[in-house]
Amino acid sequence: AHRSQGIYRQFRRELLQYLQLCKTNFHEKNYTFPIETVHGFVGTDLGLGLVTEKIISPSGTPKTLSYLSSHDEFTAKHANALDQFFDECCQLHIVFGEVNIAGLMYTENRRGRPEFVLIDGIGEKLIIPFRSMSKTINTRNVRKVERKIKSKILFYK
């Protein structure tokens, strides 16, 4: 069934992850998580587009973790925000697909504090959804991704 969705498979993963988070956090009336907020779909000349929030840095331009690291702009403030990001992903049971250093955007105006937001690589990719089914297995994976990402940032060397 998933194969027939073609290029929209990733949309499906992201939507399912967002809906699961909304369901789990319904009582807190919380709809903002460390992943981009999905707003809907729009038809384009290239097919259906997923409309999500725009994540911008304090300078007003989008900045990825990769950019901050490679331009020597990554500081202790960013390190704290990155730690908080991974802790929150574990706590909220956010399932990663293929997360990398370019899929994390930095902002300070979204929730009024420095934070990283995952904009790419969201959602379960495994045929048997072990990470979705087990918070323990998922946390182990999130921490593995965290170590891999931090190993690529000069700040930690």
Rank of each mutant, 00 (worst) to 15 (best):
F96H: 08
T64K: 01
A81S: 01
L46H: 14
F85V: 09
R9P: 08
A1G: 14
S69F: 03
T52P: 07
V117P: 00
R111S: 13
R143H: 13
Y106R: 06
R111L: 13
K144Q: 14
Y67R: 03
T37W: 00
S69K: 02
I35G: 00
G112Q: 05
K125P: 00
S132C: 07
L126P: 02
N80L: 14
R9Q: 14
H93Q: 11
R111A: 09
E88Q: 13
G97V: 00
D45E: 13
S66A: 08
H27N: 14
Q17V: 02
E146F: 05
F74K: 08
N141D: 12
D72I: 11
E14P: 00
Y8Q: 11
L15I: 15
K63M: 07
I94A: 01
K63S: 09
C22I: 06
M133K: 15
L118V: 12
V95R: 09
I35H: 08
H78A: 01
E146Q: 11
V142H: 08
M105E: 00
P129T: 06
R113A: 11
F155K: 04
T107S: 11
P114W: 11
Y8S: 12
P34E: 04
A79Y: 01
I149W: 09
S151H: 03
S70H: 10
T139C: 07
Q17H: 12
H71W: 13
H93D: 13
N141I: 05
G43W: 13
S151I: 04
P62R: 00
I128R: 07
S70V: 06
L126R: 15
N30A: 13
F155L: 05
